[in-house]
Each structure stands twice: as C-alpha cells, then as structure tokens.
C-alpha cells in the first residue's frame, strides 16, 4: 500500500486474485476449458481460411492480409472477453442478487462488475490470433516503418478497448432485456465476426452498424489497409486507419451512456 494508486486498486485486486485462484484450483476442468477455447479460435480462423481455399482475393484482400485483420481483431476480442466477458451475463447477476450486493460496497458499480470475474481460459485464444498476425506480417506485402509498428500497437490496444466497451454496452442494455439478453449477441459476437471481415463487402447498413455505431472496423480492417497500403472503401477516408483510438473513445462514451441508462432503469428513476 505504498502509493495511492495501489491503495485505490486494492479492493479490485483482492477479488480478482481470488477468482484466479479459484479457476486454477480445478486443474482438469481448467485444462479442458483452455483446450476448448483454443479450438474456438482455430475454428474461427478455419472459417476464414476455407473461403480463401475457394478464391484468392476476397473484398480486395489476399489471405495474408485478411490474416492480419483476423489476428489483430481476434486477439483484441480474446483479451476483452477475458477481462469483461462476464459483463454480458448481467441477468444472472440481477437474478442472483449479486448486483444488490454491489450496491452495499463503497466502489462504483461498473468497476465492481468488471472486477468481479475474469476468464483465464480465454488466454488460449490468443496464440491463434498471434499466429495469424505473425503469418500475415511475414506473408503480406507489409510496408515496414516505425509508423507501421506504432499503428499495429495502437490498433491492438484500441481494439481491446473497443471490444471491452461492447461488453459494457451489452450489460447496460441487458437491464432492459432481462429475458432477452441474447439480443446483445448481435453486436458483441456479431461485432467479433464483423471485425474479422473485409468491410469492403458490406452493405451500407452494415457499414453504419459496425463501422460507426459499434466501431469494430477500426479494430483490424481499416488499420490493416494502411499497413498493406490498399485503398479504403467508401465512406471511410484513408486516415480512418489511424483513428482506432478515436473509435475506442466513442465506444466507451456510448458504453457508459448505456450503462448509466441501465442503472437508472434498474433503480427505477424516471419510471
């Protein structure tokens, strides 16, 4: 408890440390969970690969370029899922009364929800994304420069933030959708699926939904266009490839607004 920051985080660290201990104590089932998560990643990659088994260029991209998109987006999603994946099971928290218990503790509700669990098994998905990213960087026609490395790093971090925001968004909306929580799958898991696609193939509506409202196109596709130097599809300008942090800020503003509305609804303010 030397510095104020670590003192501030101590309550969250205590909860998370206990969650990690609990998961690792069931070794056999944890190993099986890791295996299944790895398989999830592999199957998702295979679904992209099969399409390229049939054609060489899809949506203006070759397989190595799409591997870059897949790698960046899938790794970011896996980490967001690890940290925030439990948030989109909000109805479970409400039904079990866990949420009411959060009200009785002196931390912000959202921070408590996020820090209430962690799914270590999602780590097993990272190697798949990392391998796709590595393959893409070697095989695709990457324009290497310090700026490229910076772009990849910024995109990856922003991608984690964007997907985390989608989980929070889902949690906020699920206050209204206690019996219809599945609806948020449309943009959470739909967002993951969309993020691994070449957005050039999308219709206008999809571009609005996944390019602007839930901005997953910034977590992989648009930045990769800059890395391999391809033109951006309408309506995204070239500089949008660098705009992942902006998209992340937007996603979080949107998520926090959803969360606030949800909590107000739960407390019954304003009817």
């Amino acid at each position: 408890m030397a510095d104020p920051a670590s003192a501030l985080l101590a309550p969250y660290k205590a909860v998370l440390a206990s969650r990690i201990r609990a998961q690792r104590s069931y070794r056999a089932s944890f190993a099986l969970d890791l295996g299944s998560s790895l398989l999830v990643g592999l199957v998702e990659l295979a679904e992209v690969w099969i399409l390229f088994h049939n054609v060489t260029v899809l949506g203006g991209m070759s397989f190595p370029s799409i591997a870059l998109v897949f790698g960046l987006a899938d790794m970011a999603f896996a980490l967001a899922d690890l940290a925030c994946g439990h948030c989109d099971r909000l109805p479970t928290y409400v039904r079990a009364g866990t949420l009411d218990v959060f009200y009785l503790r002196p931390q912000p509700l959202l921070a408590q929800l996020v820090a209430s669990d962690i799914s270590l098994r999602r780590l097993a998905r990272c190697p798949v994304g990392a391998a796709a990213l590595g393959y893409g960087l070697v095989a695709a026609d990457v324009q290497w420069s310090p700026a490229t490395i910076a772009l990849l790093a910024v995109t990856f971090l922003s991608g984690c933030a964007i997907f985390s925001a989608l989980f929070i968004c889902a949690a906020g909306l699920q206050f209204f959708l206690i019996n219809g929580a599945e609806m948020t799958n449309a943009f959470v898991y739909g967002g993951r699926y969309a993020a691994t696609q070449p957005a050039r193939v999308w219709s206008g509506a999809l571009k609005v939904v996944f390019g602007m409202v839930f901005p997953v196109v910034f977590a992989g596709y648009l930045p990769v266009l800059r890395v391999v130097d391809l033109p951006s599809p309408h309506p995204f300008p070239e500089w949008a490839g660098w705009a992942a942090p902006l998209a992340a800020v937007w996603a979080w503003l949107f998520a926090i607004a959803c969360w606030r509305c949800g909590v107000r609804h739960y407390q019954g303010a304003g009817g």
Partner: peptide, 12 residues
C-alpha cells in the same frame, strides 16, 4: 476466511 479478507480489502 478468504471471503472476509476480500471484504476487508473492499472496505479498506
């Protein structure tokens, strides 16, 4: 005991 320890941390 561990639950108590976490609660102690939560209430600082």
């Amino acid at each position: 005991r561990e639950s108590f320890e976490i609660l102690a941390a939560i209430h600082r």
